[in-house]
Write a protein that binds this DNA or RNA. Structure first.
Lengths: 254, 254
DNA sequence: TCTGGTAATTACTCCGACATATTACAGGAT
DNA sequence: ATCCTGTAATATGTCGGAGTAATTACCAGA
């Protein structure tokens, strides 16, 4: 049987159409399938308890080999989204089994229309963790950390948050703070959430003007960390998170 | 070529030896391989940048099919531990790419001799998150939440933490608090960390006596949450985390 | 000697068929 | 009505080969 459906394959040996048939999220075939299924699950298209038809049936439906399908399922299983047992099929697990903090799961959750409640949960978590991180950073930062933060701040000023370079500088700034905490667990957590959330706001942030100039608020955080003032650093970071929340809320509402 | 080495296979059709050849962590073959490799990476046996020989060579070395090996690699890839590219082989990624908060990764990290620094990081994170969770729980709990907490508390009293039933009640208590926050992200995070950490202490906690009776401290948390006193709840929970830290520290030192 | 392009090697990627084992389900026995 | 057991369905494990992509080494030209 010769495959004619080019839906997911990358064999574009002579097609004059689009240059990149799938390629989007996962460069690999099984990655693309995992992405597709992951988004379907996160978007509620498959509810917990639902079964993803049979392995063979599904693989045929997607026009891919069972190997590719199985490897995709392994990825989803590793993230706690599904579980497959002989005879029973592959079932979507209850939501409390999902690794909601996995970067890819987060990305899938935010790919479509993200659940408002979930976004709220995420920001609540950020509001807890990031000020505490700023507090630790104020206590543990060294000269190098401060230099990196300062450079990032300067880059933010130059490019503004309307440009990609500016947003990259923003990420660098926050990352530098996280690094200064000397806590890998904290860094992993915040990096995951931050990446997903910022990516959304950036994506949805069309021509909308920012609510207010964010630079002074960032400077306040930097000054407190540089001064070693843990309490002030935490409070200033709290302001930043609130600002991001407002920003995201208005972006999602608009 | 007939496979003779029973190292990882479950074909025990007539061997009078051990009843369970691998079976330990992952019931599936690829799960067992992933567990094995995951532990090897987390324990530092493979350092970031190291390459896991070739796919075929490795699969032969483990006496498993390439499919099983590949599926195991997919799991590790999904958790950000490795990355494999054509010609280059499968390399261990730098530590900051790992999903350190993934339940399985956490389990692997704690399976061998856990890194002291990492344990410290995790407790620092707990010390940040759990009091905040208690604060939210005090504000949002309803009658059902309180009833479940009360029941768990009673069970803890009955069985004491020396028994498995008592520890299960302890987990139920903390889970009830997390549930009362109505925040899925928070719940996922704390469940992952708590499971890994508690599992270790339980495992290492041979005949050692507990430093002090933990029940009153738990009661204080419950009372504050029941009264809706957010501030007191947070402080009482802080005490609990400190207690757990001491407990773990002495267990790891001894 | 240095730079650039080209070819070959190497390893991953995907495939489909076969063998196996576990499980759900139904029908019969107690 | 409950328990047990046999059977069928289905996922898992295995295999080897064809295809593809990237790194490396080599060679030609400047």
């Amino acid at each position: 049987m010769v495959k004619e459906n080019p839906s997911l394959h990358r064999d574009e040996t002579e097609n004059g159409g689009a240059a990149k048939p799938v390629r989007g999220p996962g460069r690999r075939l099984h990655g693309a399938i995992a992405h597709k299924l992951g988004m379907a699950i996160l978007s509620g298209q498959y509810a917990p308890g639902d079964v993803l038809s049979g392995e063979v049936a599904f693989a045929e439906e997607l026009e891919v080999s069972r190997s590719a399908y199985r490897e995709a399922i392994q990825v989803l299983t590793a993230k706690g989204l599904v579980e497959s047992r002989p005879k029973a099929g592959t079932r979507v697990l209850p939501r409390n089994r999902w690794n909601l903090l996995d970067p890819e799961v987060l990305a899938w959750a935010f790919a479509g229309e993200p659940d408002i409640q979930f976004v709220r949960d995420l920001f609540e978590l950020r509001a807890i963790v990031e000020p505490a991180a700023a507090r630790l950073a104020a206590q543990r930062r060294d000269k190098d950390d401060l230099r990196i933060m300062k450079d990032a701040l300067a880059a933010m000023r130059r490019h503004t948050l309307a440009t990609e370079a500016g947003r990259a500088a923003d990420r660098d700034f926050h990352n530098a703070i996280l690094n200064a905490t000397r806590n890998d667990a904290l860094l992993t957590l915040t990096a995951s959430i931050g990446a997903a959330v910022n990516w959304t706001t950036q994506y949805k942030q069309r021509a909308r003007a920012l609510p207010r100039n964010p630079i002074p608020d960032h400077v306040r955080v930097y000054d407190a960390i540089a001064a070693g003032d843990a309490q002030t650093a935490a409070e200033a970071m709290g302001v930043l998170v609130d600002l991001a929340l407002e920003d995201t809320a208005s972006a999602m509402a608009g």
